[in-house]
Design a protein around this nucleic acid. Sequence first.
DNA 1: ACCTGAACACCGTTCAAGT
DNA 2: ACCTGAACACCGTTCAAGT
Lengths: 205, 205
Amino acid sequence: MPRTSLTREEILDAAAVLVKQHGPAGLSMRKLAAELGTAVTSIYWHVGNRESLVDALVERTVRELGAIVPRGSAPADRIVSVARTLRRELRARPHLIAMVHERGLTERMFLPAQQALVHEVHAAGLRGARAAEAVRAVQFQVVGYVLLERNRDRAPVQSPGESDLWTAPVAEHDPALARALARPADPERLFAVSMRALVESLLPA
Amino acid sequence: MPRTSLTREEILDAAAVLVKQHGPAGLSMRKLAAELGTAVTSIYWHVGNRESLVDALVERTVRELGAIVPRGSAPADRIVSVARTLRRELRARPHLIAMVHERGLTERMFLPAQQALVHEVHAAGLRGARAAEAVRAVQFQVVGYVLLERNRDRAPVQSPGESDLWTAPVAEHDPALARALARPADPERLFAVSMRALVESLLPA
DNA sequence: ACCTGAACACCGTTCAAGT
DNA sequence: ACCTGAACACCGTTCAAGT
């Protein structure tokens, strides 16, 4: 029994489910075929190969991300809010981040925020190359952070290594610092601090 | 002919060569065995499995990274120089970055810079929790950037997507901005700008 | 135009057996 | 203590053959 006309869309849907459940490493052409009740080779006819399947999935997921609405009245606040929202949206889709990494499609993750950022940076009075630089600096910072955080989340064990360095000379003079470094970092706060610093240095005084 | 006593060290050496040549995805237990002239299963006796092999490799590569010597006289300059050096050292070892990502061992990449950063931040007059926050903010920013750049380097095609957005309304009023965004970003410069902004906002005025 | 099974060249890991 | 081959359960992809 052949089943009713396999479509590209149907394949993407099933692939999205597999990725959501087991990550991109859990997306195999064979499991996908099993899920769809077809031969593996049928999938190749529709999507080419695994790489372009993942590319298509990334494309679709980015399109789902929805436009970002800035909040606040001061230009710096509005830009920081765009950064914060972008980070939140991306972190809410760890499979997207993972797929983007697998295929090296970082730029795609930038798109939903770029429109909003261009607008805000323009409103803050930046023009031309300086405006472009500001947009990119914010984008890079957000995506860099998101990649880093995703990486930390996947740490196999709560890394025990950081503390043992802190018998080191300097830290002995400053036990509060040693203790603070022994505690796990607060990425939320670090993100806020760093982003605020960046935005304030980018905007015209 | 059995060959002369396979050692853990010898296995790590051969694995490092494979990773250097073909990346971590090119490191397979079977190729490794072939390279070493042993049965695949011998390797398992010495290193456990592929995951702990990669972990050991990361550990070793981080240990090779060498201490970081700050340059400059102003505290801000010295901290920025540590950040710059860390970034350069990490970027010079793309396989390290890739392995760290595969195994989620980000914290390991922080280690070589942490000593130097603690010292500099302390010299700049920060103490306790504030000093720890400064150290971590710099570390996060560097590693986030390195991950992002590595990601961009692996882009399958020079991403064509960014420009097509720039028929958008705002950019039409500012053709210089549209042109600047159509050109590829200059990550070197963005890194410098962002890091400088961060450091200056962290240090006491 | 679409789907199929067989086949190829890979993987990591386990296990019982050897010395 | 160390090494072995056979076997298991996976991969992605190609290709000739079907309808």
